[in-house]
Amino acid sequence: MKKTLSAILLSFIIFVANSSSTKAQSLPGSCPDGLVWDPDIFMCVTGDPAIITCDSGSSGYCFELRFDDENNLYCPWDCFWTGKANDYCNRFYAVLLNLCISLGSD
């Protein structure tokens, strides 16, 4: 039962992941008028964080979904900084994938 549920959940995740490619439309660094982009700290000098806008309409930083298992049972999927505007990791997928692994493991 657990395995069936796991398989259904994983299929859903693969479908969602494939159908909503989240490519960035704009590069980080577009600061409001009068402010300067500081590549050193990836933010405008006022202190506003750099935001990228994605095709899905979401916004976020430049992260990528990665597998990083350490202990066999802790959530191995997480979002990692890449600094590339075309990477966008939706934490929702990461949570779903971790749930899926919990269901699939013994």
Binding site: L10, I14, L65, R66, F67
Partner: peptide, 8 residues
Amino acid sequence: ESVVYYFE
């Protein structure tokens, strides 16, 4: 392939 593919 996708990260999910590699995990499977």
